[in-house]
Amino acid sequence: MSVLTGKERRIVGFLCNWCSYGGADTAGVGRFVQPTDLRIIRVPCSGRINPLFIVKALLGGADGVLVSGCHPRDCHYAEGNFYARRRLEMCKNLLPLVGIDPKRFEYTWVSASEGQRWQHVVTEFTKQIHALPPAPVFPESPEIERLAACAGE
């Protein structure tokens, strides 16, 4: 029982606890209906996100990855999202090099009050992913696994 075949795509979200996770909560409280594809992984700060997580998800079969943090200058940890912004932009540029359509990955900023904006972001990104073919299946590569494991230990 993974994604609902035919209906859903696998979309992984990494959300910072303070703004975007709160924004997604606000959207829920406001009953702002969204597509059901997205699964949210909560992290303390967008600056906690290692681009490896994103690449690993996309290599592992995710159709899309969405990252969202606090608006720049509005980080709960003062400057975490500045680091995030550089890393995520770099990551987006890197994806084509490893054979992944960069449209499979987006990052955005949503504050805890922006429930409607979150609804919009999720809806648009889900549409974008549905417009793409299903994620390519990458052959099990011991080399990639080994490299990934290194960083993960």
Partner: peptide, 12 residues
């Protein structure tokens, strides 16, 4: 890293 990757793994 292990925990977050385990979550990713669980989803993918």
């Amino acid at each position: 890293d292990n925990q977050i990757l385990a979550e990713v793994e669980a989803l993918c």
